[in-house]
Design a protein around this nucleic acid. Structure first.
Lengths: 237, 237
DNA sequence: ACAAAAGTGTTGCCATTACACCCATGC
DNA sequence: GCATGGGTGTAATGGCAACACTTTTGT
């Protein structure tokens, strides 16, 4: 196979975090080396000759940020010839949605610093990473409207209000999304993927204690495998 | 940038064709060289150092098959270390849906032969191309349920029955999909992306002549840009 | 007693479904 | 006249949006 090709293959990871207090955030690293030295960017790096793309993202992500994620979903591949000023680099991007607070950030190798950035207060990003990020956000928002994802972003036991808040934070594109509490609850309950617990949770201030629920993974995957979920929210005309 | 990487980057094209008579088919080439010599495979090849991924697929597709398609949509990137027996090759796959009969097939370079294969009578495929194909089919089928694609597969002027047949051919997974003629028409009409023409078309045998329609691309893209289309078909419980 | 937050029920609307019936043509 | 395929109408259903009302807590 006499192929003369000078293209490098990289992977980038878009890790989105959610907390009830701060909403959506993205995990970024501050680049130690040129190009885009000292600029913020998505964690990522070059694929090794004998590792899969998935292994590569996971490895680079952990190396640069200390965040260890087993499963990232492929987002898109970016290959414009000039997306890296040095030479030709094609990048396969992956994304994941996680709870930021369970990770200990730790900048190493190519990263001079690491941090979570509020999705609405992002710094300028290196390469075409801004583009990747937008695409990932779109994907997540879209996915959320037809498939109940994001249960791993809540505590094991959660109240309906928590779930509602999560949806509003991710989908809410500034313009606040109006989801009716009552209807939201009915819909989610009817899906049969959440279990009611015998406990309640006291409210911070005043107010009736909220019933706690738990996500049922078995039923979720069973449902998912035999046919797609219905739309979670109706379409507006 | 002292990177020692020995990964080759390729692109593969999944071109699906539709004719009223034969239904869905896939465009395949017969490999001239090892590995998988004389086996059928998706058209594709290595990306050149200075061309975009999109240019690469289009070029390789035309070189190997004579089929010239301006726009292919990215499907997925495949990067398992052993997907090519010779050495490490990562492939970015693209797909498109076309009318087969407008193309003149012409096998050249790496292809010893080219042809359209009925989607239900496919030969064994080289590499992981079977997997790519399945994934592409899923994507197309899924997309079709929430977005009216496939108008370019029909003649400029078409009858509703043609459209219905198209949907049944693509979505119909053996188990026949029951779409009510009347309801299908109402739904499509209500989308406002098709125009009624003053003409009719005689039936091959007997039967009332069918009204002809035309797809309105402007209205389609306008609608598409501001908000997603509604689901074309309801979900079954 | 009142505010705050959660839980529950009800009503009307509208999209979808299923089905029936009518029209135009070839034989 | 009948078979074939296209066109149109309608009643019944069911899901959903909207909104009101009730319950439980803290102050």
């Amino acid at each position: 196979m006499a192929i003369e090709q000078h293209i490098l293959l990289a992977v980038d990871a878009l890790v989105l975090g959610y907390t009830p207090d701060s909403g959506l955030s993205a995990l970024l690293i501050k680049r130690r080396y040129s190009p885009f030295e000292k600029m913020w960017a998505l964690p990522g790096g070059f694929v090794k000759d004998d590792e899969s793309l998935e292994d590569a993202v996971s490895r680079e992500l952990e190396e640069e940020t200390g965040v260890k994620i087993e499963y990232l979903e492929q987002l898109y591949s970016f290959g414009k010839p000039d997306r890296d000023p040095r030479r030709r680099v094609v990048s396969v991007s992956y994304y994941a949605l996680v709870k930021p607070d369970i990770y200990q950030l730790h900048a190493t190798t190519d990263a001079e610093d690491v941090g979570w950035f509020d999705i609405n207060k992002l710094p300028e990003l290196a390469f075409d990473h801004r583009h990747i990020l937008e695409m990932g956000l779109d994907r997540v928002r879209n996915k959320m409207t037809y498939e109940p994802i994001g249960f791993n972003l809540l505590d094991e036991k959660f109240a309906f209000a928590d779930l509602l808040k999560l949806y509003e934070a991710i989908i809410g594109d500034n313009k606040k999304l109006i989801i009716d509490r009552a209807n939201f609850k009915k819909k989610l309950k009817s899906l049969g993927i959440i279990e009611e617990l015998p406990e309640s949770r006291k409210q911070p201030g005043s107010g009736r204690p909220a019933r706690l629920y738990r996500f049922n993974r078995e039923q979720y995957f069973e449902k998912k495998n035999r046919g797609v979920f219905e739309m979670l929210f109706p379409h507006r005309s």
